[in-house]
Amino acid sequence: MSSKEKGWKEISIAGVCSKSSVGFMTGDWKTYMPVRDLEKCTTCLTCVMLCPEGAIKWRPEMGKIEFDFSFCKGCGICANECPTKAIAMKLPEE
């Protein structure tokens, strides 16, 4: 926490969370990362729907699916549920 953060005496009794968790990058938790085969992907959006992190984003203006690796925890739900098996879980070095 930065020095600008309020101390426990200054915050309101009920406790108000002032910052958005979008600033807290959970992406560094992962071991494996999803790698997508663009040729197999049919943009069915199954991965976008089932990702618990909201780390897979649908960009309607570009008609593309984007992975946000700053939040992806590497759980592998997207790879497991992909109907065309377009996503594989790999170590970052691979």
Partner: peptide, 24 residues
């Protein structure tokens, strides 16, 4: 599916649930 996917999240990323959390 596209309507839903294009809707901004109200439960934001950066929550600290385990990887693969069902409730999240």
């Amino acid at each position: 599916a596209k309507d839903i996917a294009a809707k901004p999240d109200l439960f934001l990323s950066g929550h600290r649930a385990c990887a693969g959390c069902g409730p999240a």
